[in-house]
């Protein structure tokens, strides 16, 4: 039987590629880690894959700004290929640093597909420092194929630059109208709040954005870090031993690809 193929991008400083490959493997896909240099040398290889992932890490040391150098590289070497990839009905996932890259390439950072200007960015946490903590996420998009619109999930974040901000106040309304806000930070009961419920001061508590097709998702939290029960921060207190909220993201993506792309 044909299998969904996932390209997990590697580059200098990307450091969540192994666990992301593993998470897609658990979801039944065939994931392969490929260095950006190989993709640039032979961009047609993207045709062989159904899902492309920009994993977490510190691509190029986050020099200049988080994700910026890799985004610049993708923009100048792969932008047509990326456009084709999305137009071909395929899926792109950006996790943490990968989300930052997708925003800064414009793929998730633009608001209108016709306007070339980046209107969204991700910047320093209000706390001014890197933080690793677990947070609750409320889904808020009907169209994003990666998420279950009715399931609140618990995942870890680990970043210093995770605050989503907009160039002007019109951007948020447009994103909401387009169903592009995929997850928002909430507490366990689903209420919005300040720090640490919203761990970085993100506008409107936004934790994840998708594009207008719903097939490109960028999120600050790390779903690949909760694909096994004993990754939960207090699993030793829990009764529900099957729980691993992050798996849903990978399973949804692979199921979608199986149904639509194989």
């Amino acid at each position: 039987m044909a299998q969904v193929k996932v390209l997990v991008l590697r580059a200098a400083g990307i450091n969540c590629d192994m666990e992301t490959e593993h998470a897609f493997g658990l979801a039944g896909a065939l994931a392969q880690r490929v260095h950006i240099n190989r993709v640039i040398e032979r961009p047609e290889m993207l045709e062989d894959f159904h899902i492309m992932v920009f994993p977490g890490g510190f691509s190029y040391g986050d020099d200049v700004a988080a994700g910026k150098i890799l985004a610049n590289q993708v923009t100048h070497h792969l932008s047509d290929r990326m456009r084709d990839f999305i137009a071909g009905g395929k899926l792109i996932l950006g996790i943490c640093n990968g989300f930052q890259v997708l925003v800064k390439t414009g793929i998730l950072g633009r608001v209108d597909d016709v306007c070339d200007e980046q209107m969204i960015t991700i910047t320093d946490n209000d706390s001014g420092k890197f933080e690793d903590r677990w947070i609750w996420l409320e889904p808020s998009s009907e169209k994003c194929v990666f998420i279950n619109p009715d399931t609140r999930i618990y995942l870890p974040i680990a970043h210093g630059e995770g605050k989503v901000v907009f160039k002007n106040s019109g951007v948020l309304n447009k994103l909401k109208a387009d169903g592009r806000v995929a997850f928002r930070y909430v507490d366990e009961q689903g209420n919005f709040g300040g720090f640490p419920v919203n761990p970085n001061g993100s506008t409107d508590s936004i934790a994840a954005l998708c594009d207008t097709t719903g097939r490109v998702l960028g999120l600050m939290p790390h779903p690949e870090r909760f694909v096994r029960f004993t990754q939960h921060p207090h699993w030793s207190r829990l009764e529900d031993k099957a729980r691993a909220d992050g798996r849903m993201i990978f399973e949804n993506a692979v199921r979608y690809a199986e149904k639509n792309l194989l």
Binding site: D132, E224, R225
Partner: peptide
């Protein structure tokens, strides 16, 4: 100190440096 360190990268953590009902 602990929260400034990524203690979960590599997806390997089982017993984290901070534990308990509110982590």
């Amino acid at each position: 100190v602990i929260r400034q360190y990524d203690h979960e990268v590599q997806g390997s953590s089982v017993v984290k440096p901070l534990v308990g009902i509110t982590n």
